[in-house]
Nucleic acid binder design. Sequence first.
DNA 1: ATCATAAGTAAACAAACGTTTACTTACTTT
DNA 2: AAAGTAAGTAAACGTTTGTTTACTTATGAT
Lengths: 200, 200
Amino acid sequence: MRPKNLIKEDAIRSIALQIISEEGLENLSMQKLAKAANISPRTIYIKYENKEDLLIKLFIEEVLGGYEKAILENFDPKMDFREGMKRLWLNTFHYLKNHKPSFSLLQHGKSSPLLNKAYQEKNIRQGEFFAPIPIFLKTNIEAGLIPDLPLDVYKALLFSPVNDLVAEYFDHADRPIQIITEEMILTCCETVIKGITTLK
Amino acid sequence: MRPKNLIKEDAIRSIALQIISEEGLENLSMQKLAKAANISPRTIYIKYENKEDLLIKLFIEEVLGGYEKAILENFDPKMDFREGMKRLWLNTFHYLKNHKPSFSLLQHGKSSPLLNKAYQEKNIRQGEFFAPIPIFLKTNIEAGLIPDLPLDVYKALLFSPVNDLVAEYFDHADRPIQIITEEMILTCCETVIKGITTLK
DNA sequence: ATCATAAGTAAACAAACGTTTACTTACTTT
DNA sequence: AAAGTAAGTAAACGTTTGTTTACTTATGAT
């Protein structure tokens, strides 16, 4: 039988992400995607059941998968707290600023009920998603190096400021001088570390 | 002449926000909105030029306007740093957790290119938007009470963790026991304050 | 009471939507 | 080399989209 053309599958994914990033989730249509990828609409339906299936698989497999892998690169739960934090922040910053379409769909995941629901179900089904980070925190809490705050508070402190700075980076990415630098990420990270390790 | 029915105008706004919150921006249509508000589609076009105009005015005037007002309530740039920070965090938490549709559109504003662009233009045109906060920070920097970090770093530290915790609050709002409490917000706020005031 | 006029309605417009039907192509297996 | 089959196409399906046209309603001013 005729084999799948993997180049076309890649094109569907990358062009879908590109359209979402440039025009928003509300402006992605199957026909627009097919035309931009130079294929027939029917071809998308070989791989994906429907539009919702495409969006969820793009979000969960393509984007969240790559994001998790990039964040955890060279990270080990047994690292020193300061070094571990810096590694996570720099991994996040470098990955996201070089993958604008992925960052864009991640942001959509926080507002679209469809994607948000899919994210929550993934979190419930796969307990190992981003698991090294809770282990890292627990180890440091048990060693008495950081206070015993709720996991949600740690998640808010670890992930949201660097995410916010990346959003700011893209908002001004066309400027002649870089507004958000690696130095600023490290300053912000250092501030959070100080806050956590100084508390109580 | 026949006067406008202000109740209908209110219904358009609140029902639009409700649909966006429950089904997402990508599932709001003018006809669905008209049907849900029990009016003719044409009535929406008396107040708004088109769909984009409706979304932008909803976002900028209705949502951002109310958000800014709520955050700055009982806040004064001359407040003590710790007290000012707590005021801002608690205002944000209480307002957002009681205004889910507004929170939802605020989140959409971070992913939708249309709304994001509108937000940036508002920020440029109206230099006074959220102005008390930069003044608050500048005053404390000049008094030597907090370090001289870039405004973007302060914005990331002040706004994003509490926003993230509100998102978590809504994700688990149907649970029997409250997951995100005011106590957690204050703990998180205290951590950030410690980080900022301890640094250097 | 009537008039002028903007508010508001019901129905319709072309265009675009997600998806499917009917068909052809290209490659593996025999 | 022929057969079998999934990949892939072009065109179309019925809906729904954003918006408008043609009309009616309700109210302040005369």
